[in-house]
């Protein structure tokens, strides 16, 4: 039950969406792009965000694209997480996605919605950061393509009126060895204490994290430490942990101390498996 009223628009092209946004913005309608909409509905119900107009981008063809092309996997931002899991063209993304919210919710939550949402876990971005994916962004200035690490820095870096259209992931990344683990406060449901997504690209480990800080991130410096040839696993991990880019979360899900304990254990497990494989 949403107390405030808003207008609902469903444009069919990128241009139309951007134009609508500009126009509604000028009219002080506080327009919001709307994809899965699950978070917008829950925040509106509690009067935690304001809008008088939502622009549903699900009818925009490009936002629905799900193409395994010659060079790239194209994922429209309005694809639901379940659609992406079922097609399973990007197994690491499938694996991360399957731990987000719950199955029924993922029938509604979209890739773009998860990445651009307010709830700071935004785990679906982790595989995209690890694979140097490209983010296709639309807006009043037309369409632009940015590398993931530029488009996403703690949050999606969207200018006024911009929205995520799709992501492009190079096909050679899709088949690389990967692991992802989500550890929760207790058992199998709930927000993460930490989610780790890891990829092995040409012998080098890449790792991205959610739940550790108040934003998801991939850290080159942490990866460099993990990939150093000197030192035991423990030593390399300790060095890597020094480069966590922000204070570790300390909240009702878990203390900072405990999150670090969990992080270390989980990372050890991932690295051990890969090093054992490598040595075998």
């Amino acid at each position: 039950m949403i107390p405030v009223d808003f207008d609902y628009y469903k444009p069919e092209s990128i241009e139309e969406a951007a134009r609508l946004h500009e126009q509604l913005d000028r009219q002080k309608m506080l327009p919001l792009y709307y994809s899965g909409g699950t978070e917008i509905i829950t925040l509106l119900r509690l009067d935690l965000i304001q809008t008088k107009a939502v622009i549903d981008i699900k009818a925009i063809h490009e936002c629905r694209e799900h193409i395994l092309g010659e060079d790239y996997l194209v994922l429209g931002s309005s694809l639901t997480l379940t659609q992406i899991e079922e097609r399973n063209a990007f197994p690491l993304l499938t694996s991360v996605s399957k731990e987000i919210a719950d199955h029924t919710a993922r029938n509604k939550i979209t890739l773009g919605g998860n990445i651009c949402g307010e709830i700071f876990y935004r785990e679906a971005v982790l595989p995209l950061l690890l694979t140097d994916s490209l983010f296709v962004i639309g807006g009043p200035q037309g369409v632009k393509i940015l590398p993931a690490h530029e488009a996403f820095q703690q949050t999606m870096q969207l200018g006024r009126g911009e929205f995520l259209i799709q992501t492009l992931t190079r096909k050679d990344f899709l088949g690389m060895p990967y692991m992802s683990v989500k550890i929760r406060q207790q058992w199998e449901t709930g927000y993460p204490l930490v989610t780790i997504a890891a990829l092995k690209a040409k012998g080098e480990i890449r790792a991205a994290f959610s739940g550790l800080c108040s934003f998801p991130f991939r850290s080159k410096r942490m990866e460099d430490e993990l990939n150093r040839k000197d030192g035991t696993l423990d030593v390399r991990m300790d060095r890597a942990l020094r480069h966590i880019p922000a204070p570790v979360l300390n909240d009702i899900e878990g203390s900072a101390e405990y999150r670090l304990f969990v992080l270390k254990n989980t990372l050890t497990d991932i690295l051990t498996v890969w090093e054992v494989e490598q040595n075998a």
Binding site: I41, T104, N107
Partner: peptide
């Protein structure tokens, strides 16, 4: 035919 939580759908 797909399950949806009708409280988070307009």
């Amino acid at each position: 035919g797909i399950p949806m939580k009708s409280c988070i759908m307009l």
